[in-house]
Design a protein around this nucleic acid. Structure first.
Lengths: 336, 336
DNA sequence: TTGTATGCGTTATCAG
DNA sequence: CTGATAACGCATACAA
């Protein structure tokens, strides 16, 4: 019934239906349409209805951009994570969202799904939609810079940076406690499953540093690299145990691989912790589901989210907060 | 140095720094600033640098709204879930994000954190920032309507609606398979742990329907209501077992409560599945961590996300897709 | 290389 | 009750 008349210059692009289109269709001014749409009082119920009908007919949707331009704009923070399905992130996301809610802000979550190339693209596209970015990124500052265009960024974990906000995690305290405990229990032949890690101090280095500090000699053959997943953990453990049948304890890069190791151990007929003690890292709640539950270097993920938002806040307000360093502690469950 | 001159009517609000401010500070036109900011070629490297400096100095950030207004705008879909930390959602979120990526769209995730009142507020605030909404909502269409202002909405699961897009889950097929299996194994005294559920057909009703269909008489005392969490599952199981020590199998409202039941059973010295068989619902991957792993009515959560996005697509393009109904099947692991 | 003018879709102001 | 008209902040032809 309603015809899209005149102008529409190009003719190629579908042309979004606008307030004016509705106005034309309803035979009123665009201003009246605005009033109808926004439920303003000063309008004849009759015209109001007519306008609303026309709007529905034309499938009119107000442009959030035009609105944002006029109304006081809401702060929106983008959060980039490598993989939503990784159980490490949900809690962190919760922390970020909570911290945002407190400030009346919004959070846009994007996931690269492990696609390292997609990361930069996501930084770009998400970046132009938000006021600041929080990201678990694999690229360096230099690589990131051209895509940022001055957008405030907070880099999380495993990433060094002087140019941006930072929330880092120091696994050493928890790891130290864990190793001390193991040593106290007589463990000496301790292996580690490491994972690839583009930026920042690797956990392998932490492990090395702490074992050395505690007077444990660990050569490279005790550290095996695995994929960051349960399957990766299983494979790595099998490998490690094959190489060193005498091992009595294994540290996992994180809980995911530690759980993989747990399962591999089980399959090999090893009792945890009697035949082989296990220590994860992250302190995921799912570790509790194992029997015995997985001991782990606990990271307060919700807190991480809050700290990240504090960094954002500082960046946005022009008074940057000092880089945050989150400590860790041993979460003593049953796997050693 | 830079004075905010003239107009600026109100004078109260902090006034966002704009292109013009930078232009004034750098002594060029706002156009030149735009070129500098956007890395356009046609500009003297010197002025460029001067402008960039001024921009940094004034902490200039381009308005994403103004930009969106001018550039081809990217479709953004809001996703509202009750609780990010609930392991049911991450996979679904992944599905939604994937489906969005395929279309070159973005996803904004919001979580009500179980706050039922906050739900409406979130619908409002998130709603005005996106082109469409996907939501696990507890409110009825009528309650939602005034906050939607015509925004396309897709309601997920446990929610009836004629006014919006719908993705529903039919647990019956999987539940039927599960019960058939249990019955074949000789189970007759089967209990269920139910959870509160504002909208849609309750799983309790499903359970009733299927047991009846299979010729099993189940009176109310075999159905116990629990909180939707592991702790709730534990309490409910304890309660149920106390009431009916003769029970041989329990169906959980979802995997979370089923896992709780599992733990409670363990604590009571019951072997799963020998002393009590267990069946969950959702098919969460964490069910695999139990020993024996949790059997469950499997729901393809990634697929749910895709279906939701298909609904959105239909709504946005003006050719609504028929309501989606996702089937289920028995995921046979070890807990029965 | 740089500046001027115009339009994007809305809401707000102030006339009629 | 309704309709012009002016912002909002930015980008993009077009002119200088």
């Amino acid at each position: 019934m309603v015809k899209k008349t005149q102008d529409s210059g190009a003719g190629s692009t579908p042309q979004r239906t606008t307030l004016k289109d509705v106005a034309r269709a309803a035979g009123v001014s665009h201003q009246t349409v605005s009033r109808a749409i926004n439920n303003k009082g000063e309008i004849d119920p009759l015209t109001r209805q007519r306008v609303l009908d026309a709007a529905r007919e034309l499938r009119y949707r107000p442009s959030r951009f035009a609105r944002g331009l006029v109304r006081p704009d809401m702060t929106t923070v983008g959060l980039i994570i490598p993989d939503v399905a990784n159980p490490f992130y949900p809690e962190l996301i919760a922390g970020v969202i909570e911290a945002a809610n407190v400030r009346g802000w919004q959070v846009v979550v994007g996931s690269t799904q492990g696609d390292r190339d997609g990361e930069l693209a996501l930084v770009r596209s998400l970046g132009r939609q938000v006021d600041a970015l929080i990201g678990f990124l694999t690229h360096t500052d230099a690589e990131l810079a051209p895509h940022l265009e001055g957008l405030p960024l907070v880099v999380m974990d495993r990433h060094q940076s002087t140019a941006h906000g930072v929330v880092d995690v120091d696994v050493r305290p928890g790891l130290r406690q864990g190793l001390q405990h193991l040593i106290a229990r007589g463990h000496r032949r301790i292996g580690m499953i490491d994972c690839a890690n583009e930026c920042g101090e690797s956990r392998r280095d932490c492990f090395r540093a702490v074992t050395e500090e505690l007077g444990l000699a660990v050569d490279n053959s005790w550290i095996v690299l695995g994929e960051e997943s349960m399957a990766g953990g299983e494979a790595a453990f099998t490998d490690l145990r094959h190489r060193h049948p005498e091992l009595t304890a294994v540290i996992g890069y994180n809980d995911l691989v530690a759980i993989g190791a747990f399962r591999a151990a089980r399959r090999m007929g090893l009792a945890v912790p009697q035949d082989c003690a296990l220590l994860g890292c992250d302190g995921l709640s799912i570790g509790e589901l194992l029997d015995p539950p997985l001991s782990s270097v606990y990271i307060d993920k919700r807190r991480m989210g809050q700290l990240a938002m504090d960094q954002v806040d500082g960046l946005l307000s022009g008074t940057p907060t000092a880089p945050a360093l989150l400590g860790t502690e041993l979460l003593h469950r049953g796997s050693f």
